[in-house]
Design a binder for these strands. Structure first.
Lengths: 223, 223
DNA sequence: CGTTGCATTGAAATCCCTCAAGCGAGGTGG
DNA sequence: CCACCTCGCTTGAGGGATTTCAATGCAACG
């Protein structure tokens, strides 16, 4: 999909474009687009939340790190998804590019001003937060109560809905990202993929491309 | 704390009082109070979300059930906490009284009308959703990456902050509720409590009352 | 063609779960 | 008032799912 080099991990971001950003609900806001290299930080935890972000291309992950280095990925954001919208002054998680990505930035002041005078727009912003909440509620059940097999199956079903390719899913993220998202280890994720392949539920032409051979069977595993 | 009888589990709710309900952020809304018996449902998943709720006394849990009966408790709501605020038409989780409780009900129509014309109020409602999201983000890390000991320690620290009693915490919920909240089994929760008691970190004068003997040690376990 | 980073696989260990029994407080009924 | 029941909680023993540790495979890149 994308060529990857060591240089890109440290490439500087650069403003790309100034103009309007179209968001869900017919919102149209002034913004600009920036490039982020794979693994580059879009914003850090505790940083001032001066912007709201929308993925244009590529993918972004939100992460939380525990003091001893354990990591939890909270969500993957795909093209069209909005992230980093906060009510408070600071971001409450870290956002990093999963692959080389283009991200639109919208100033918080523009958001706040619009929400102030347009109650329909305010409702749209509230809806964005509410969507995140809903997604997290589902994810909480997965983390609290599902087996490794169910977690991976759920992940594949959801990804196939969100980012369908011709005959399956193209995963922009590494096994480590998936593991940290599903509350598993990289080895367990890999073994589970292999098991699903042995059981003819999926095919793995390459590690990042999954062909769903038995969607029925996969859906049954997705408790 | 509260006397419990089999009758109370099936007691009907009854309107108690009509008047104003004070919410966070200086919001004042028309509402009324109802009694809920222990384990009584406040609202069910998929039910129309015609009301927003605030705990007056007692405690409420939000739950999600998987098809095979596995349960995940999403949150415990204590006096003052608002729950059940939705943007969509229906509730996305079930809410039940953990103990005999009084709950204030506010009509959604009143909320919507206020949010429509008062942008400061709209921001307050958004803030409530945002708070829930923040709490869930923390909980997600717990479910995805923490050990049983860390989960219980975190739970006790948080409960002690939210519902302090003279020398510790009064837990309104059962071991089963705690287990389903922490993504563990009731036995593991019980064993972990016992271990913390053996290690002189807590004392358990009764199963529902926890004395925090070593808050420092507890905080260290709370990764 | 060696290096590097990511992914897969195997073997052993561990943490937590499952199954099962026992305990204690509170309520009921004889 | 005491025996008995129920329900929630605790404790033990054994097992299993996932992690940990370690080695190998593989593709991209220089």
């Amino acid at each position: 999909m994308q060529t990857i080099s060591a240089y890109q991990d440290t490439a500087r971001t650069s403003p790309m474009l100034s103009g309007r950003v179209q968001m869900a609900g017919g919102l149209d806001l002034p913004g600009f687009v920036m490039d982020f290299a794979r693994n580059e930080e879009v914003f850090g935890e505790e940083e001032p939340a001066d912007f709201v972000y929308q993925v244009v291309s590529g993918a972004v992950r939100s992460t939380r790190i525990l003091s001893d280095g354990r990591r939890q990925v909270g969500a993957f954001y795909l093209p069209g998804d909005v992230f980093g919208l906060e009510l408070g002054e600071t971001h409450r998680f870290c956002a990093e590019a999963v692959a080389n990505s283009k991200v639109a930035l919208i100033r918080r002041t523009a958001i706040d001003r619009l929400a102030e005078r347009d109650s329909a727009a305010a409702r749209q912003f509230w809806a964005l937060t509410s969507q995140d909440l809903q997604r997290l509620q589902d994810h909480m059940v997965l983390l609290g109560r599902k087996s490794a097999l169910e977690r991976v199956a759920t992940f594949l079903v959801k990804m196939a809905e969100r980012a369908p390719s011709r005959d399956g899913v193209d995963l922009p993220m590494s096994r480590t990202d998936i593991a940290d998202y599903l509350g598993l280890t990289i080895e367990t994720v890999s073994r589970t993929f292999s098991q699903l392949e042995r059981d003819q539920v999926i095919a793995l032409p390459s590690s990042r491309h999954v062909v769903l051979r038995d969607r029925r069977g996969l859906a049954e595993l997705d408790a």
